[in-house]
Design a protein around this nucleic acid. Structure first.
Length: 415
DNA sequence: TCTGGGGTCCTAGGACCC
DNA sequence: TCTGGGGTCCTAGGACCC
């Protein structure tokens, strides 16, 4: 008995959601019909394309490129600032709608979901009809279009949803691979990015079909385990389950690109403290502790480097983690102006299975204080309490995280 | 007014142990 | 005397995804 998996992919997600919202707000022009993008704030150095309309795509505007370069391609380009909270809401509404078609819906990303349609025919008909029903209901009830890909596993369903866009249903079963997937350029395959594609093409492997018939041992010697993975994918082999439970947290981090390069140690440390506050609050919110603390820095020339340390006991307090963050920073920073910094935590443990240790108690009183502060922030807002060192510093006490358009980070100088 | 943020997984190489 | 081999753990960096 074979599985039927759907992959639902919102067409130009951020841009579609922005367009729908603006129409609802009474705006006349539909962003989807004109060359437009959702893009970050250039003054705060977040000026990249986050999503593009289909007319913008005709100008060869790419997701991730700078707004500066996008405007060179299309001077009349309309740029809309992002509204992440709105997009989260749209995503949740779509998930709710999909849950009416199957109890097993996996939230894969803000704009992509898998739905296990196996054994659902008796309720909603054959897969293609059900997919059309889903697609059309999303359009009618929520106002945006999606592609639905249907396949025997998640990989082929995802590849199917990526075929022709927008507002389409495609199937991609094993017997259809030769016609629908193998002629595509190898970089269209999930998990073949630009680096791998370049290596493959250098060896004359240009299409997914070429990859499918390449000798596995050759791919292994070229790309190690990743070579075997993409060889399987090129042949439609993938068997992970659609899972609607939450994935266990492996690590979490927050980073920020600053509006100005940071040159002083004092300012850098304050920003790191601010990032530490943000990420540790998230850690504690999940009732987690971490053993590995990592910082990463991107300097003014875009050169990136990182430094990490594993501590003996899993910790979660702002102070204990910041102490390590500070050490790490002082060990690697060589005075070069900083564009971006991040703090990331991994090797995560849940508090309930804590191995009690003599040293863990050091963190206990701090943790109580943090808990109190976390609760105040949750109840009265993130600005209700903050460390006095941030007062008049020009630095946000909680740096990092997604930034909505009305909430620009403003880091000038502490002097 | 040029280049985001949040993730996961893998590998190379060094330290260290027996 | 002149250079093992296996194993684990750790760090830094890089690949990929959205």
């Amino acid at each position: 008995m074979s599985n039927i998996i759907f992959h639902v992919d919102v067409n130009s997600a951020y841009l579609s959601w922005e367009a729908v919202h603006r129409l609802q707000m009474g705006e006349e022009v539909d962003l989807r019909q004109i060359p437009s993008v959702v893009g970050g704030n250039e003054k705060s150095r977040h000026g990249i394309v986050l999503a593009k309309s289909i007319p913008a795509k005709k100008y060869n505007i790419q997701t991730g490129e700078t707004l500066f370069s996008a405007r060179l391609k299309c001077p009349e380009l309309v740029v809309a600032p992002p509204r992440y909270h709105l997009y989260m809401k749209c995503s949740q509404e779509m998930e709710k709608l999909l849950n009416r078609y199957s109890p097993n819906v996996q939230f894969y990303s803000i704009d992509e979901m898998f739905l296990d349609y196996t054994n659902m025919e008796k309720h909603f008909g054959d897969p293609v009809s059900a997919a059309h029903s889903i697609k059309n209901r999303i359009k009618e009830e929520l106002g945006f279009t999606v592609n639905v890909g249907i396949g025997p596993n998640k990989l082929l369903a995802k590849m199917a949803s990526d075929l022709k866009k927008p507002d389409r249903v495609h199937t991609l079963f094993h017997e259809e691979m030769a016609a629908k997937m193998w002629p595509l350029s190898v970089d269209k395959l999930f998990m073949v990015g630009s680096r791998t594609a370049k290596k493959l093409k250098a060896k004359g492997i240009n299409t997914i079909g070429d990859l499918a018939i390449t000798d596995r041992s050759k791919l292994y010697s070229m790309l190690k385990s990743h070579g075997v993975l993409i060889h399987n994918y090129a042949n439609g082999i993938e068997n992970s389950k659609v899972r609607n439970d939450l994935m266990p947290v492996k690590g979490l981090g927050n980073s920020s690109t600053f509006a100005f390069d940071v040159c002083s140690e004092k300012e850098a440390l304050m920003l790191l403290l601010s990032l530490t506050e943000t990420v540790t609050a998230r850690l504690r919110r999940g009732d987690f502790r971490a053993k590995v603390i990592k910082i990463h820095i991107k300097d003014k020339d875009f050169y990136s480097f990182s430094h990490q340390r594993k501590v003996a006991t899993a910790i979660s307090s702002t102070d204990a983690i910041y102490k390590v963050v500070k050490e790490l920073f002082l060990e690697i920073w060589h005075k070069k102006p900083i564009r971006k910094m991040g703090v990331a935590l991994s090797d995560i443990y849940t508090s309930d299975c804590e191995q009690l240790s003599f040293w863990a108690e050091e963190d206990e009183s701090k943790r109580e204080l943090d808990k109190t502060i976390d609760n105040i922030r949750m109840r009265y807002g993130s600005k209700a309490v903050f460390r006095s060192c941030f007062l008049h510093s020009g630095i946000k006490p909680l740096e990092g995280g997604v930034i909505d358009s009305e909430d620009y980070p403003m880091v000038s100088s502490i002097l």
